[in-house]
Write a protein that binds this DNA or RNA. Structure first.
Lengths: 250, 250
DNA sequence: CGCGATTTGTTCTCGCGTTCACAAACTCAT
DNA sequence: ATGAGTTTGTGAACGCGAGAACAAATCGCG
């Protein structure tokens, strides 16, 4: 079955690796700004907050860009990762929902500096139309299709309330958007071929709260309800240092 | 070795499951608001956007809260999950860095409604001190220790520029904070026992860009690369619908 | 009371991702 | 040129999570 076709390198980068590449990219940029020209996998791993073995394996999926006995050329590797991710080119982006979060996103300098260009801010509220945010005029949501087609927008950001999210997603897809970053606290369904990533602020806090509660239980005890097992024996095992980088796994 | 003490049920909930519990909680809330009193695992799974088998397995880690042949009582299950996560109690939270994102976070209603109470907004810029944001006065960052101790704050949110993140984290830890949600695009290191979760907006976009680039390549060329086994039989595999819920896995 | 229908809880298997460990490759000093 | 010291790239083992499949349990109805 695995009639491995003619092509040699089966360029399949694991999803977990893809999620870490931007982290490496950022770490490399930081190193470059610090004047570092060359770094070892150990150096870069430390800067990125990961294991060096994992870093090397991740990079090996891209190719052999290091030199044994020496390390990696910072600028060269940086370019290779940027090219692999696709941020050497410019990606037009539309943001829908110009509330507090939409404002913050529109003003976020990290987008522009990383190859993303906000070509439109849209809101369903006609009151907001015309308002200038981060140098871009807010237009009505109905203009989505026109703008998306005009600028060949492939990536859309949803920053609306949960109730509007599905409708916005549908309209985006209809307008040709094939990648959606969803900040609305709602599950949206999209047709095949469309990628959705979801960022939920309150979920992150709830995950922290869970671990925080476990810590408290270990210390104070009390809290009879349902805590059958943990009788203080292994206070350590439960939660040591848990550094979870989101925007990571999927 | 696993001299698991007297207790029977080793209440260890997998991290992946913990990350999904808030999603289930939200879905249950939506169902409850729709007047639904009872639901099957299939119903809830659909509402949460996951596989029903996975949902049942996740819930089984909490206990047996369903009834075979019937399903789950929405309110009952909702309470059980909320209790497990720890959002039945109120968590005081401090937000440091009142820029665009800090503003958005302070105004985000999803926090309050889910058991989190913003007790302080802090900024290092003395200009901002006294400013009212979301009904809370902005105070100077130096007040962190005082406020954190006073309100027994365990959870802190970093919304500062990258350069300030590590310092803020250090001060938070010194003030007794043991869980940090970091929005700054920087890797921060904390002592053992302190949890850190990182949300990075631009990384999410970069991950989307990667997949978007692959799609484009696929169209232009004959998308030879990497499609090993699946030779058209089930065109689903490569990049069919990839819905990655962040704030999910870790 | 018994039987079919339904749905949960759990077991089993498979695949992915992480980590270890080491050979290959490169530099530098002598 | 050769050997010692580094560092990459990768093969292999391991553990966790996802998904399928099934047994156990409950309800409804005759």
């Amino acid at each position: 079955m695995t009639a491995r076709s003619s092509s040699e390198t089966t360029r399949v980068i694991p999803e977990a690796t893809v999620a870490r590449l931007p982290v490496y990219l950022r770490a490399l940029t930081a190193l470059a700004e610090g004047g570092i020209r060359t770094c070892s996998s150990e150096d870069l791993a430390t800067a990125a907050g990961v294991n060096s073995a994992k870093l090397r394996k991740d990079l090996s999926y891209l190719g052999s860009y290091g030199t044994r006995g020496v390390g990696y050329d910072v600028d060269y590797l940086r370019y290779q990762i940027a090219r692999e991710i696709g941020v050497t080119q410019d990606w037009p982006v539309v943001i829908v929902g110009i509330g507090n979060l939409g404002h913050a996103l529109a003003n976020y300098s990290g987008f522009r500096s990383r190859g993303f260009r906000v070509v439109a801010l849209l809101d369903a509220d006609a009151e907001r139309t015309g308002e200038m945010v981060a140098g871009v005029a807010v237009r009505h949501f109905d203009d989505l299709e026109t703008i998306a087609r005009e600028h060949a927008v492939a990536i859309g950001v949803i920053a609306t309330p949960a109730a509007a999210a599905q409708d916005v997603a549908d309209r985006m897809v209809a307008a040709g958007v094939t990648s959606i970053l969803n900040f609305a606290p709602a599950v949206i369904s999209v047709p095949e071929g469309v990628d959705v990533r979801k960022v939920d602020l309150s979920i992150e806090l709830q995950i922290l709260a869970y671990h925080e509660q476990r810590k408290a239980h270990g210390q104070a005890r009390g809290e009879v309800d349902g805590v059958d097992g943990v009788d203080g024996v292994d206070g350590v095992a439960v939660d040591g240092v848990e550094v979870a980088t989101v925007g990571g796994d999927s």
